[in-house]
Nucleic acid binder design. Structure first.
Length: 604
RNA sequence: GCUCCAGUAGCUCAGUGGAUAGAGCAACCGCCUUCUAAGCGGUCGGUCACAGGUUCGAACCCUGUCUGGAGCGCCA
């Protein structure tokens, strides 16, 4: 593998959302550097980051340590000189030099109060859109249309949808595309079996649901494995399909529509965006011969054992010889590499895309590295476009093994979600009984569904995307810890305040005074204002768990505030100030969760 | 055999060059006449797999080793 393929992710720097506070402070530190040590240092990274520990203030600059060698002075002396030139008194308390040469900055309470006041009526909560929006494709799960969705589709759906939502909110032009498997061998098998066992099915489509098709698939697979004649019939169906045989095409379309509808049902339950463009493998069929011809024209194509190949740089087979990427099989057929290459070319040349993100399992890392390499060598992928594989780990069972049913099959997604909802419902009903609360069936069903689905999604998103994760209903539904229910509860608590006090947050107006008195409300306020820093980080690294971590800390800080600071009983102007702070917290949780694809509840 | 990913507290995990490595769970101790205790506070818990190296500074970067996972020619 060449290093080039990995570069685009790290090279992204220019297009960040600028947090006003951190960006401003960076600019001031840079100015101070120049003032203290001359124009040579213009453009030096001020190394300004959130403080590693609250006792060091809010932000710290480590630049003095880095410059010690270059300037030939002790880092503390450098830091002192920078501080002397640093004029940030409208934002910070007087900067201090600590330890070996850290510059510590603490925001002024009056500054935080003013910032909060400024965003209190802003639907974007002070997050500025990116200055240079990009046209981005996010790849959605590509299940094979002939099968039901299973647990393997959970992560790409949840993570991909979250990435798309965040990039869109940040201001990019996002195109959601599903590269569904709507062509190929499984289809031949399925069509052959339908013809054999249920010839009527092709004319009475409305009676079929995908549950049936799924069992058909298993039956068909069984026949396929057992019977040589059936295998031949399946192959024939594929040939007929590819030849455009009308009856076969009709069967194919019926199955596609049925499964499409079935996906939509699960996607709706999961809260996956409805705005997905379905561009299946069949979409690229017309382009496949051109792809091979073009590769040939470019001199990249080599015939090997009857297959048309592009030999790869940096990949070898078990004998140590160069590894080919096969783009046309010896029987003349095409494979997924060809389709993916066609998609790459189409996305660059027709969609005019600037960035493509593939949230796909880490086991396909080689595949993506390979097709990106060929795309690059073919000239389709240039320095102006980024093709990024955003890999993620496996979903494992509690024993650390791959998650399966007892019979060893992949767990159906629908069943998994039903189970989560049922467990959420059982928890809720237990609590209602304990608290002697009466709620309607509608309330219970809705709350259980939101809690159950949110728990599944949040558990997935809150782990570092790249590692495997262990699926545990008990942990994800736990009411304490970094879970969806904890966040939902923090939001509900704020709504409880408004109900109890008969307060309509929207009526508070945009001009309420903010007074930050208790240390918990100051800490909460500071955290609310860091929302955009998290979003700009995610624009670069595409790791949703950063947002989860942020929301968890926000909820914790809110609960501490809630514990320490009475809101409704406080005297003015503290009361209104705390109402605004509570509402801003709730709005931040609501917006943050919505970017994760998770709704909120008013009561739970 | 090769490639990629991972190894941090009993468990699940944050932490992609900065200060004394952090959460949650579990265990134990406190806090409800007060906006939902689905909460809050506290205690306990670490040779950051191991060995070298780079650096003023390394869990993080480099090299090697060990362990686990994934992948490696006509499936997707």
């Amino acid at each position: 593998m060449t290093i080039d393929e990995q570069e685009p992710v790290r090279r992204l720097k220019a297009n960040q959302i600028m947090n006003s506070t951190i960006a401003e402070l960076k600019a001031y530190v840079e100015q101070a550097l120049v003032a203290a040590f001359g124009a040579d240092l213009a453009g030096t990274d001020p190394m300004l980051n959130p403080a590693s520990n609250p006792k060091f203030g809010d932000y710290q600059s480590n630049v003095a340590l880095a410059l010690a060698k270059k300037l030939g002075q002790p880092p503390r002396a450098i830091a002192e000189q920078i501080v002397q030139q640093l004029e940030v008194s409208h934002i910070c308390e007087p900067p201090t030099v600590a330890g070996p040469g850290f510059i510590n900055l603490e925001l002024k309470t009056s500054y935080i109060e003013a910032q909060l006041k400024a965003i209190q009526a802003d639907p974007r909560l002070g997050v500025a859109p990116v200055e240079q929006p990009k046209r981005i494709i996010v790849d959605y799960p590509s299940p094979n249309i002939a099968k039901e969705m299973h647990v393997g589709h959970l992560r790409p759906a949840v993570i991909g949808d979250c990435i798309a939502r965040m990039l869109e909110f940040v201001g990019h032009d996002v195109l959601r595309i599903s590269h569904v498997g709507d062509w190929g061998t499984p289809f031949g098998m399925l069509i052959a079996y339908l013809r054999e066992a249920y010839p009527d099915a092709l004319t009475t489509t409305n009676q079929l649901d995908l549950g049936d098709l799924s069992s058909f698939y298993r039956q068909a697979k069984k026949r396929f494995d057992e019977d040589e004649n059936f295998r031949e019939a399946a192959r024939l169906s594929v040939v007929e399909l590819q030849a455009g045989d009308e009856k076969t095409l009709k069967a194919w379309k019926i199955v596609c529509q049925l499964s499409s509808r079935s996906y939509r049902k699960i996607y709706d339950l999961l809260g996956i965006s409805a705005d997905i463009l379905e561009r299946g493998e069949s979409f690229y069929n017309p382009f496949l011969p051109e792809i091979v011809e073009e590769l040939d024209r470019l001199g990249l194509l080599v015939e090997d054992n009857g297959a048309q190949c592009v030999f790869l740089d940096g990949f070898t087979n078990k004998e140590g010889k160069p590894l080919p990427l096969i783009v046309q099989k010896s029987d003349g057929g095409y494979n997924y590499a060809t389709t993916d290459l066609a998609a790459i070319r189409y996305r660059v040349q027709t969609d005019k895309i600037q960035r493509v993100i593939y949230p796909v399992g880490a086991e396909q890392t080689n595949h993506f590295t390979q097709i990106f390499q060929v795309g690059r060598r073919a000239g389709w992928i240039t320095d102006e476009v980024e093709f990024i594989h955003a890999p993620f780990g496996l979903v494992l069972g509690e024993g650390g093994q791959k998650l399966k049913t007892r019979s060893g099959e992949a767990i159906r997604l629908q069943e998994l979600l039903n189970e989560a909802i049922a467990r959420a419902r059982a928890d809720l009903e237990t609590r209602l009984k304990e608290e002697e609360r009466q709620e309607t069936e509608e309330f219970i069903a809705h709350a259980a569904e939101v809690v159950g689905i949110s728990a599944v999604k949040y558990a997935d998103l809150s782990q570092n995307r790249t590692s495997n994760y262990i699926f545990s209903y008990d942990k994800m539904l736990a009411l304490q810890g970094n879970t969806a229910p904890y966040m939902l509860y923090a939001y509900v608590r704020v709504q409880g305040i408004s109900r109890k006090g008969g307060i309509d947050f929207k009526q508070l107006g945009a001009d309420c005074p903010i007074v930050l008195q208790d240390e918990t409300e100051l800490a909460l306020a500071k955290h609310v204002l860091q929302f955009d820093e998290i979003l700009s980080a995610i624009d670069l690294d595409l790791l949703p768990n950063r947002l989860c971590q942020y929301l968890f800390e926000l909820s914790q800080k809110f609960n501490q505030f809630y514990d320490r600071c009475p809101v409704l009983q406080a005297d003015e102007p503290l009361r209104t100030s705390r109402l605004v702070l509570s509402n801003l917290t709730a709005q931040t949780i609501k917006l943050g969760l919505s970017l994760l694809g998770i709704p909120v509840l008013e009561r739970m």
